[in-house]
Simulated scan of single mutants.
Amino acid sequence: MSKVFKKIYEVGYRDVNLRRECKFSSYMEFMSDIAFKHDASLGLSIADLLESNHTWVVFSYKIKVFKPSNYQDELRVETYIKTFRRYFAVRVFEIYNEDNELVLQSESLAFFIDIIKSKPSTIPEYYYNKYHLSKEDKNIKIDKLKLEKPEKVDIEKKFNIRYTDIDFNSHVGNVNYVKWIIDSMPFEIVKDYRICEFKIKYEKQIKDQGSIIVHTKLEYKEEKVHTNHIILDKENNELSLLESYWEKIK
């Protein structure tokens, strides 16, 4: 694996929910930010990527939250590249609190994309050297995330895509998909439960300011809620599949 890159983030006012706990979407924003900071520290900044007509596009996330963090907590976010394979990259994230307790662990799978051709591009050999990846690292197996579509629709909610949802890659930012899911959930779940696991598979980029529809299947299991989601565009094309587990707050 590559060297670990670390950065401290403070949980600010905009990062917390009604319980003054760090929002799940804020954890994801910390992860996105540190990934770009890590790249830039190795001389592979966003500007350098775009100048070469390349970018990274996230294909999937697997995220587990082990304990909450609160307003004004300092979090140590760590990341490293687990492996490169052709045009895939697997990146690991870990978030620790001030007591060095593991708050969150995540793994993402991303494509290296040729912007001009709009298709995956082979990761340059010098990237392996930049991230200090060994020959053994290149042979690590990549498990692509498989998620099920909701078997039934318990909740349907429509969202309009705003200009502020679009990122520098000219498509809807990854975190917005999660915000749509959370905003589509019944208030009593958001209020009385917290996310402990989330899986996301991005299948199609959203580039315009139209609208999307979230279909959700809810399943209550003792002290947890299990959900399956699909995000569709206005033509009913599948954009993303998601799965989440929520645990009851005691």
Rank of each mutant, 00 (worst) to 15 (best):
residue 50 L to P: 02
residue 65 V to T: 08
residue 171 H to R: 07
residue 48 D to P: 01
residue 77 V to L: 13
residue 36 F to Q: 11
residue 27 Y to D: 06
residue 110 A to T: 15
residue 130 K to Q: 00
residue 220 Y to P: 01
residue 143 D to H: 10
residue 124 P to L: 04
residue 219 E to I: 08
residue 80 Y to S: 07
residue 79 T to W: 04
residue 142 I to D: 00
residue 91 R to M: 03
residue 103 V to G: 00
residue 21 E to M: 08
residue 21 E to W: 00
residue 16 V to Y: 06
residue 25 S to V: 12
residue 91 R to F: 00
residue 205 Q to W: 09
residue 203 E to M: 15
residue 38 H to G: 06
residue 137 D to S: 08
residue 101 E to W: 03
residue 223 E to M: 06
residue 104 L to H: 02
residue 191 K to M: 06
residue 175 V to L: 05
residue 70 N to F: 15
residue 113 I to M: 15
residue 6 K to A: 02
residue 222 E to T: 09
residue 162 R to E: 10
residue 100 N to A: 10
residue 12 G to Q: 14
residue 45 S to T: 08
residue 27 Y to Q: 07
residue 111 F to H: 11
residue 124 P to C: 07
residue 165 D to I: 07
residue 50 L to H: 14
residue 40 A to H: 11
residue 233 D to H: 03
residue 47 A to S: 11
residue 67 K to Q: 14
residue 37 K to C: 11
residue 24 F to T: 14
residue 46 I to S: 04
residue 103 V to F: 05
residue 242 L to G: 06
residue 72 Q to N: 12
residue 73 D to W: 10
residue 142 I to N: 00
residue 18 L to T: 12
residue 146 K to R: 15
residue 140 I to L: 12
residue 32 S to R: 10
residue 133 L to K: 01
residue 136 E to V: 04
residue 231 I to K: 03
residue 36 F to N: 14
residue 181 I to W: 05
residue 33 D to H: 07
residue 193 Y to C: 00
residue 29 E to L: 08
residue 176 N to E: 12
residue 162 R to A: 11
residue 117 K to W: 08
residue 99 D to K: 12
residue 66 F to H: 14
residue 123 I to M: 05
residue 172 V to I: 13
residue 65 V to I: 13
residue 136 E to K: 10
residue 140 I to P: 00
residue 235 E to M: 09
residue 4 V to K: 15
residue 190 V to R: 10
residue 173 G to R: 10
residue 23 K to P: 02
residue 129 N to T: 11
residue 193 Y to K: 02
residue 103 V to N: 04
residue 107 E to D: 11
residue 86 R to S: 11
residue 1 M to C: 00
residue 248 K to E: 13
residue 93 F to K: 04
residue 137 D to P: 01
residue 78 E to T: 01
residue 134 S to L: 08
residue 157 K to Y: 11
residue 177 Y to T: 01
residue 161 I to R: 10
residue 199 K to M: 06
residue 97 N to P: 04
residue 224 K to I: 03
residue 126 Y to D: 14
residue 113 I to E: 13
residue 28 M to A: 13
residue 78 E to I: 00
residue 82 K to F: 00
residue 141 K to Q: 13
residue 99 D to I: 02
residue 171 H to G: 13
residue 195 I to V: 15
residue 9 Y to F: 15
residue 169 N to P: 06
residue 15 D to C: 08
residue 214 V to P: 04
residue 166 I to N: 09
residue 240 S to E: 02
residue 26 S to G: 05
residue 85 R to G: 03
residue 208 D to A: 05
residue 164 T to G: 04
residue 249 I to Q: 01
residue 29 E to Y: 02
residue 39 D to V: 00
residue 103 V to K: 03
residue 138 K to W: 06
residue 183 D to Q: 13
residue 120 P to C: 09
residue 190 V to C: 04
residue 180 W to V: 03
residue 226 H to G: 06
residue 150 P to F: 13
residue 222 E to I: 08
residue 28 M to G: 09
residue 175 V to P: 02
residue 225 V to C: 12
residue 228 N to G: 02
residue 56 W to P: 01
residue 75 L to N: 12
residue 71 Y to A: 09
residue 127 Y to I: 13
residue 197 E to R: 12
residue 59 F to G: 03
residue 166 I to L: 09
residue 118 S to I: 05
residue 13 Y to A: 14
residue 22 C to K: 01
residue 132 H to E: 14
residue 70 N to Y: 15
residue 239 L to G: 02
residue 218 L to M: 14
